[in-house]
Simulated assay, not measured.
Amino acid sequence: MGARLWLLDLDDTLLQDLSVTREVLEALGEEAGVKGLFGAVRARAEALFRQAPFYPWAERLGHSALEALWARYSTPGLEGWAAWAWPFREQVFREALEALGGPAERARELAEAFFQRRRRYPLFPEVPEFLLALRERGAHLVLLTNGVPDLQREKLAGAGLLEAFSLTLISGEVGLGKPDPRLFRMAFCAHGVAPEEAVMVGDNPQRDVQGALLAGAKAVWVDRGHRPPDPRFPPHLAVRDLREALALLG
């Protein structure tokens, strides 16, 4: 029997994420007269994010340093994050600009510009056809995404995916993040499906592939060119286009 339950990751699986961040930052760098702003911001954001008082929680739930630069933190319970965020963002841009010999006095301006311009939600080109093919074959579709609730739901709304899934599990809402197999089992139980009838599709070997293997599901690794394969967690199938995974429908 082919896979009945399809667990789908969001960022860099269905939704173009890192490439949009890079494009926005590179454009802002050009406007500020510096080259390499994406790399400098990413390095400073990741280093400073590890010093945040909430970092262990963010790491466990899969909320990244780059996302912290544009999350609204409007979810009830994240008021502390909201108060922390703008000083963090300004410091990230100031240190990045200083490292590049750029106008550090424009740090707040650039941080605010990134916060506004980053709100783009393009899907990968094959996603509509892929999702339609799954639905036509009677597959159950579940979104399994790590991150803070308000940002992940904003992405879903912006990408037109709010109604695409029978169940949406966001790590920040349920308190469990991939690769914790309990998150996967929630989806199995909700649909009355055995692990071997499920497939997880995602771009992150450590979170998506490992989680699927721990939970007993099939794992499809989507190579978007951002992450290398991890030999510790071999997927059942590696693809570059989501439509290649339809072979698992049986």
Rank of each mutant, 00 (worst) to 15 (best):
G216T: 03
W81P: 02
L15G: 08
A159N: 10
A187R: 14
L28H: 14
L151G: 07
V148W: 04
T75C: 04
R119I: 09
D241E: 11
G250T: 01
A219T: 01
L162K: 15
D12T: 11
Q16L: 04
L8A: 07
G36I: 05
A107C: 06
D17Q: 14
L248C: 02
F88E: 08
R232L: 00
H236V: 10
V142I: 11
W86R: 12
G101R: 07
A238I: 13
A32N: 12
S166M: 12
Q206H: 14
P122Y: 03
R117E: 12
S64N: 13
V174Q: 07
L237E: 02
A217C: 09
G29N: 12
N146K: 01
F233N: 00
A43F: 06
L242E: 00
P181K: 05
D9S: 13
D12P: 07
L237D: 01
L183Y: 06
E173N: 01
N146F: 07
A58Q: 05
A68P: 00
L131E: 00
A139K: 14
G160H: 11
A71S: 15
R135L: 14
M186Y: 09
R153E: 14
F130Y: 05
R243L: 04
A104H: 02
E98L: 11
G29D: 13
N146W: 01
A40S: 06
A65K: 00
F114H: 14
A245I: 14
L169Q: 07
L144P: 12
K35R: 15
R224Q: 13
E46Q: 00
R4N: 04
R60W: 03
A43D: 11
L131F: 08
S166R: 15
A217W: 05
S19P: 00
D203T: 01
V142E: 06
W81A: 08
R94P: 02
D208L: 07
A247G: 11
P229L: 07
Y121D: 01
D12S: 03
V92K: 01
R182W: 11
L134K: 15
G225S: 09
R118W: 07
P234G: 00
Q116R: 15
L123I: 09
L5C: 09
R243G: 03
E79W: 01
F114G: 06
A212I: 11
V142Y: 08
G101K: 04
L10T: 04
F184V: 00
P228R: 02
A238S: 15
L141V: 09
R135A: 15
P179Y: 13
R240H: 13
